[in-house]
Simulated scan of single mutants.
Amino acid sequence: MSEAGKIQSATEAATTRGDRVFLWITRIVSTLGVIVTVWAAAWTGSMLVHGHPAYLILLVLTFIVSLVIAVRSWLARAVRHRGWKVIRGVLGVLSLGVIALAWWLVPSTAVEPALSAMNSDARVTVSETADQIVLQPTGAVSEVGVFFQPGARVDARAYAAVLRPLAEAGHVVVIPKQPFGIAFLSTGAFGSARAAHAPVTRWVVGGHSLGGTVAALDAQSFAGASTESVVGLLFFASYPANDLSGLNANVLSISGANDGLATPDKISASKASLPADAGYLVIEGGVHAFFGDYGQQSGDGEPSVSQDAARAEISAASVGFVNAFDQ
């Protein structure tokens, strides 16, 4: 065989090996996509229909594409030479990224007593849409409403029990469902909701963890507005990302003494970024996950108080803070 022939044969052999490797990578990645999306859907449970639809759409699309590619690749009887190796490599990496994102975005689903608090009764009417939950008092309605941002990747329903006493006290409570459970993807939600809940004319914005950080941005934007203004900012185990020391609104920060995420040191360090007259309440023995009902949270501290007791204290302080604006 000539030298040119040997080179061509070696090239063809290398190409065949490369295509075979790519075929197996395709099989593995697509199969992983099917497994991860099915697991994520099962783990997410009822939040697939009660959460913002963005995550459900992501899972469905990822599952369908992964399933189609997996079936085709596993049924392939022969290795075919395909070009565009760089593009194929990039698509493989992007596919892994999407699958990893679907896994990482699995939310913490609401548990009792939050689920029971989602039921309407003689005092509060609970309504739920694809992008928000509204707790509406059935009696006299205050002019002061509450807009509360959930923590990262936490079911919006998880805050129904801790916030329901506010609605029982006469305040409309709006809890947005964030796309993919990320508060920064819901920064326009408060602006859209401001005029939609008459007779509310003033608002207390608040949030848990990352949700509180986004609520602080809303407070900064709408405090002092001529209509539908923000008059209060309520932090649940949270703090601002920017300087709010000159904020024209009252502030209450409620935190947990045993919080392993929004630690007491972090809360203390954030005081310089808040108005000098901001109020602070520390729930002795409380942890990060006690500000909602969604189970334990990775990285959190160990509680030394019951969640029922902590929830009652958080709710009472929140009601007292918001009621003060009616006086």
Rank of each mutant, 00 (worst) to 15 (best):
S221C: 10
S66P: 08
V214I: 15
A100L: 12
E228V: 04
A152Q: 14
I64V: 15
G301V: 00
G299K: 05
A272R: 12
L233N: 02
Y55T: 06
G212L: 00
A317W: 04
G292C: 05
V205A: 02
T44R: 05
I283K: 10
A241T: 12
S95L: 13
I175C: 03
G45V: 02
A198R: 13
V34I: 14
W24N: 10
M47G: 12
K266D: 14
V144S: 09
V126Q: 03
M1K: 13
E168H: 02
V205P: 01
V111H: 09
L210Q: 13
A215C: 03
N258G: 08
W104F: 14
A309E: 15
A215I: 02
R27P: 04
L101T: 14
A117S: 05
V98I: 13
S238C: 08
Y159K: 13
L48F: 03
L67D: 04
H208I: 04
P150Y: 01
G139Y: 06
A216M: 00
G207C: 06
T31V: 13
I175Y: 08
A195V: 01
L274V: 07
G97E: 07
Q297A: 04
G51Y: 06
W74P: 11
G188Q: 13
R77T: 12
D293T: 06
S73L: 04
I64H: 05
V93C: 06
I267H: 03
A278Y: 00
S253N: 11
Q149A: 14
L59R: 06
S304N: 15
L185A: 13
V29A: 05
G260N: 09
N323F: 01
G191Q: 08
R194S: 02
A14L: 12
D293R: 01
A110I: 11
A40L: 09
S192P: 08
P240G: 01
V305E: 09
V200K: 04
A237H: 02
E112W: 10
V106G: 01
A196K: 15
F184K: 11
N248R: 12
S273R: 11
V126P: 03
V154F: 06
A225Y: 00
T44N: 02
L56I: 11
S108D: 11
L135M: 14
G151Q: 08
A183Q: 02
A262W: 00
V106L: 09
A10K: 11
L281A: 11
R72K: 15
S116E: 12
W104Q: 12
Y239I: 03
L244A: 01
A278V: 01
L234Y: 06
L59M: 08
M118P: 00
A140C: 04
W84V: 11
M118W: 09
D293E: 11
T37P: 03
G246V: 05
